[in-house]
Every structure is written in structure tokens, then in C-alpha cells.
């Protein structure tokens, strides 16, 4: 096993462990060889599962999909689509407005993504919330709902509630009054580039329904 790992290094890199004592008894030899076989088996299974988990869908990974996911999820779940196959090439603007409670007065649209961008600007180590929370909340909502806002999977309601929570928490500090309901809209703009017409690069806005504001739980 060590011979095949790239980390092995030359023998000079190996660590001689204390005095090279010998194992003289049968039980201790059996123990060590049993452990070696176990480690070899577990490592082989893990490497195979890791490969199939990350490889594109193919007959092998489809046949063993259930076993692979049983082994990998959730402890070893991983996703290395880092800007691949194509990087994100559109800018996302997420805005929200609130309807305030006693009189139903509606606030103006508040650009939450611009606030995140301002937070990140000039910060050598931006935080996870400013960089990821709102964007991922929107993307997950969009993935688990169709164009009309109907849920498409078991996690849809969780993702809707999460997006609502993120937006509600952000608006709460910015509007004077109790929030009765919120409305969210997202504008996608293709970044201009080679082969992209001006018409394609025009902003596209998707506006969600008004949602009753509520913090916390889930109906799922």
C-alpha cells in the first residue's frame, strides 16, 4: 500500500519507529496481519467509493449508486464543481420588500445583495454569511421550486423557509415596524462577453409571491 501512495517518499523519508522489535507470537502476528487486511480493505472501498461518487454518471456508478451513497453520505459528501464545467457568468441581485403590520404599508425594494457586496469590499477575509448565505438560499430555493413557485422535491419547504428566514432577519433590522409579509425578487444579468448579444445580457427579474413572515420552524 505504501508503495503506491504518492506521499510515500523515499525510504529516507520513512520514519523508523523506535527499536525494530520483532513479533514472536502467533496471536500478535495474526492481530497485525488482520489489521493490515482491514485497513487495506477499508481504504480500497473508500477510494473506489470516492471515485464513483465524483465521476460522471456511468454504468458502474449507476449500478452501485445506492451502496456508494450509503458509504459517502453524509460524512464524506463532497462537491468539487469549483467554477466547473463553466464558471458562474451572471450576476445575481436579490432584493426584498416588506409589508408592515398594522396598516399594510409597503416598504421600497431593499437591495440585500448590494449590502453583502459592500460588506465584502475591502475585507481581506470576508465572512461566510456575507459571501454565501443569501446567494445559496436563493439558489437552493430556485433549484427546489418550479417557475411558478411550486415545490418540486422533499426539501422544497425547508429551502423556502430558509430563504424567508435569511431575508426576514435582514429586513428586520432595516424597516421600522413589525413585518407582516415579505416579497423577494431576483434579477439575473448575464455578464457581457464574446458571443453574447445585448438582448441576452438584458436583466431578467423573477418576483416571488408575498410570503407571510414567520421565523423559525418548518412544516416539513
Amino acid at each position: 500500500m505504501s508503495a503506491s501512495t504518492p506521499a510515500t517518499g523515499t525510504p529516507a523519508g520513512h520514519e523508523p519507529a523506535a527499536a525494530p522489535a520483532r513479533l514472536t507470537r502467533r496471536w500478535s502476528r495474526a492481530l497485525v496481519s488482520g489489521a493490515t487486511l482491514t485497513v487495506a480493505a477499508v481504504a480500497s472501498v473508500h477510494l473506489a467509493a470516492t471515485f464513483l461518487y465524483n465521476a460522471p454518471a456511468n454504468p458502474v456508478s449507476q449500478r452501485y449508486a445506492e451502496a456508494v451513497h450509503w458509504w459517502m453520505d453524509p460524512l464524506f459528501s463532497q462537491n468539487w464543481r469549483l467554477f466547473a464545467p463553466n464558471p458562474i457568468s451572471e450576476n445575481l441581485r436579490i432584493e426584498a420588500r416588506a409589508s408592515l403590520d398594522p396598516d399594510g404599508r409597503t416598504t421600497g425594494w431593499i437591495d440585500l445583495s448590494a449590502q453583502d457586496e459592500a460588506t465584502v469590499r475591502g475585507d481581506p477575509a470576508p465572512g461566510h454569511l456575507a459571501e454565501n448565505s443569501l446567494r445559496n438560499a436563493w439558489l437552493q430555493y430556485a433549484q427546489t421550486h418550479d417557475g411558478n413557485g411550486n415545490p418540486t422535491g422533499p426539501n422544497s419547504e425547508i429551502m423556502r423557509q430558509y430563504l424567508l428566514n435569511v431575508v426576514f432577519d435582514r429586513l428586520r433590522g432595516q424597516v421600522g415596524g413589525a413585518i407582516g409579509s415579505v416579497q423577494i425578487r431576483a434579477t439575473t444579468t448575464l455578464i457581457p462577453g464574446p458571443g453574447r448579444t445585448a438582448a441576452q445580457s438584458a436583466p431578467q427579474t423573477r418576483t416571488l409571491d408575498w410570503w407571510a413572515a414567520g421565523r423559525g420552524g418548518s412544516t416539513a
Binding site: 467554477f83 463553466n86 445575481l92 445583495s113 465584502v120 475591502g122 464574446p194
Partner: peptide
Amino acid sequence: LKVQGSMWQDGSALGYVLRLNWFHPW
């Protein structure tokens, strides 16, 4: 995965990444 991406093939990928508003500290 990047090898399969048209933007990595035509060399435009990093230009788009640098124009993303979200990851834009400087």
C-alpha cells in the same frame, strides 16, 4: 470538469469570474 466547459476552452472563464459582483473584495 473544467476541460468540458466551453468558457475554459475558449479562455474566457477567468474574465467572467473577475466580473462577479459577489466575490469582489477589490
